[in-house]
C-alpha cells in the first residue's frame, strides 16, 4: 500500500513539474531569443546582441534597414503612452464605481440587491468579442467618434465589475461591528467611512485597482473594436505588427513587457503577503 502511494506521488510530481515547464518554456524562449543576432531566422542562434533592444528604444544599430520592422519608434511610444493613459484613467474610474457598488451591496439593505449582483457579474462572463461589437455599434450609432475616450469608457464597463468582485470578497471577510462601534461612539457617516471603513477595505480596493490596471493594459479584443485609427494601444499595435510579419524586434518588445508583468505581479504578491 505504502509503495503504491509513493508511485502515485512520483507520477504526480513529474507531471506537475512538466506542467510548469510547459507554462514557462515558451516565455523563456522569447526572452532568450530576443538576444539572438540572427536577423533571418530568429530561432537559430547566431550570437548575442542588444540590437533589437536598441531598435525599439530608437538607438542607432548596424542592422540592415530591410530587416527592421519598427520604422519609427514614435508609433511604438505613442501606443505605449495611449495604453498608460487609458489604464490610469480606467483604473481610477472603475475603482470608484466598483467599490461604490460593493459597499452598497454589502452594507445596505435594498430591494434591487440581487439585480446589482447579477449586473456586476455579467461583464465578467460575457465573451470579450460581444462587448466589443456591442460597444462599437453603440459608439458609432450615437456619433461618439472612436478614440481614447471610447476605449476608456469600454474598459470601465467591465473593469468596474472586476473591482466590485475583489472588493466584495474583502468586505465579506470584514467585521462590521467596528463600523457600528464607530457610529455608537458618535462619529458621523463620513468620519466612520474615512477612519474605519476605508482603511479596512483598502487592501481590497488596491488589489482591485491593480487588477483593473493590468487587465486594461493587456486588453486586446475589446480595444481592437473600439479604438480609432490613431488611438491604438500597445497590444493592438503589437497585434498589427504580428499580422504584417514576424520580425525579431517583437521578441525584444515582448521581453520588455514580460519584465513589467513580472514586476507588477511580484509587487502584488508582496502586498498580499504583508496584508496577512
Amino acid at each position: 500500500m505504502r509503495r503504491k502511494m509513493s508511485w502515485r506521488n512520483l507520477f504526480l510530481s513529474v507531471y506537475g513539474w512538466l506542467f510548469l515547464v510547459f507554462i514557462y518554456v515558451p516565455i523563456l524562449l522569447i526572452t532568450v531569443f530576443s538576444f539572438n543576432s540572427n536577423p533571418v531566422n530568429m530561432m537559430i542562434w547566431q550570437g548575442f546582441t542588444f540590437d533589437w533592444y536598441r531598435t525599439i528604444f530608437g538607438f542607432p544599430t548596424e542592422l540592415n534597414e530591410l530587416t527592421l520592422y519598427v520604422e519609427s519608434t514614435d508609433q511604438l511610444y505613442h501606443a505605449v503612452l495611449n495604453s498608460l493613459t487609458v489604464a490610469l484613467i480606467t483604473t481610477a474610474v472603475s475603482t470608484v464605481l466598483g467599490t461604490s457598488v460593493a459597499l452598497a451591496v454589502a452594507r445596505f439593505r435594498f430591494r434591487l440587491k440581487n439585480f446589482y449582483r447579477a449586473l456586476m457579474f455579467m461583464p465578467m462572463i460575457m465573451p470579450d468579442i460581444i462587448l466589443g461589437i456591442a460597444l462599437l455599434i453603440f459608439f458609432v450609432s450615437f456619433g461618439f467618434g472612436l478614440g481614447l475616450h471610447t476605449i476608456i469608457i469600454g474598459h470601465c464597463t467591465f473593469l468596474s465589475s472586476y473591482v466590485f468582485i475583489v472588493v466584495s470578497a474583502r468586505i465579506s471577510d470584514m467585521d462590521d461591528s467596528l463600523e457600528e462601534a464607530s457610529a455608537d461612539l458618535g462619529a458621523d457617516g463620513w468620519t466612520t467611512f474615512k477612519r474605519v471603513t476605508l482603511p479596512l477595505i483598502a487592501p481590497g480596493v488596491i488589489g482591485g485597482a491593480m487588477l483593473a490596471f493590468i487587465i486594461s493594459m493587456d486588453d486586446l479584443v475589446i480595444t481592437y473594436f473600439i479604438s480609432g485609427v490613431d488611438s491604438t494601444t500597445l497590444p493592438v499595435h503589437i497585434y498589427g505588427m504580428l499580422r504584417r510579419g514576424i520580425k525579431p524586434e517583437i521578441n525584444a518588445i515582448a521581453t520588455v513587457m514580460l519584465a513589467f508583468s513580472f514586476i507588477i505581479a511580484s509587487v502584488g504578491l508582496y502586498m498580499r503577503s504583508r496584508k496577512k
Binding site: 516565455i27 486586446l220 515582448a254 505581479a265
Partner: peptide, 29 residues
C-alpha cells in the same frame, strides 16, 4: 506553486500567443 501557475495571467495575452507562433512555425523552435 500556485503563484507560479497563476503568474501567466498577468502576462500579456498577445505575448503568450506570440510565443507559440515562434515555436510552431516551420522555421520555429
Amino acid at each position: 506553486v500556485i503563484f507560479l501557475i497563476t503568474l501567466p495571467f498577468f502576462i500579456s495575452l498577445i505575448v503568450r500567443l506570440f510565443a507559440w507562433v515562434l515555436i510552431l512555425r516551420p522555421t520555429g523552435f
